[in-house]
């Protein structure tokens, strides 16, 4: 009886689900593009994501979590594809806090002046990040997810999310420092 009721509830929610899910299409597509780097693969990845989402729409209990749920599916699809594509073992990034020396060597950058950096310089720096770091950072800075939501999407503990984002930003600081210095806006390492 309970399962019949649950099915009915989900059935009623389904039309709303389709509209809400497709409302996130632009975000998902742009996020996918930032992950894979070209439109054709981004399109394939997003299509796979939605087909899976439509198939399993009944598993989504709260429509409010639809967006995060879609990002989670997309991320899982991306990881699966990469695993299939690569015949060689994946590079494993060992997680952990920053080493003591890491933050000491970080250059200082000023907000107003970093805004003068060119977009290609920033995109290039982002592209050099390991994918897990880049994914966490983009989910945080572009999509506005909380660490908890990112942990849910990437299926890892919050501490790992925190570490990945911190490491990603530290690496970006180093990458962007020479560009900033060329504009005369670097202030040297943190002392």
């Amino acid at each position: 009886m309970r399962s019949r009721q649950a099915r009915l509830t989900r059935a009623r929610a389904h039309p709303e689900f389709a509209a809400v899910a497709l409302g996130a299409l632009s975000s998902l597509y742009n996020f996918a593009y930032r992950l894979v780097g070209n439109e054709a693969d981004a399109e394939d990845l997003v299509q796979d994501t939605y087909l899976e989402a439509f198939r399993h729409a009944g598993q989504l209990r709260h429509l409010a979590r639809c967006r995060a749920w879609l990002f989670r599916i997309l991320r899982n699809r991306r990881v699966s594809r990469e695993r299939m594509r690569r015949a060689r073992p994946e590079l494993i990034i060992l997680e952990g806090g920053l080493e003591p020396g890491d933050s000491e060597a970080l250059p200082r950058l000023e907000r107003a002046l970093v805004a003068r950096l060119t977009r290609p310089a920033i995109l290039h720096a982002l592209a050099t990040l390991p994918e897990d770091m880049r994914t966490a950072l983009l989910l945080c800075d572009l999509e506005g997810f909380t660490y908890e939501e990112i942990g849910d999407i990437m299926q890892c503990p919050i501490g790992t999310v925190r570490s990945r984002i911190a490491r990603a930003r530290a690496q970006l600081m180093r990458q962007l420092a020479p560009h900033a210095a060329a504009l005369g806006i670097g202030k040297g390492p943190r002392s």
Partner: peptide, 12 residues
């Protein structure tokens, strides 16, 4: 300040 600069650059 540096972290905010990088966060802003990524968003921009």
């Amino acid at each position: 300040e540096s972290l905010l600069a990088v966060k802003g650059a990524v968003a921009a």
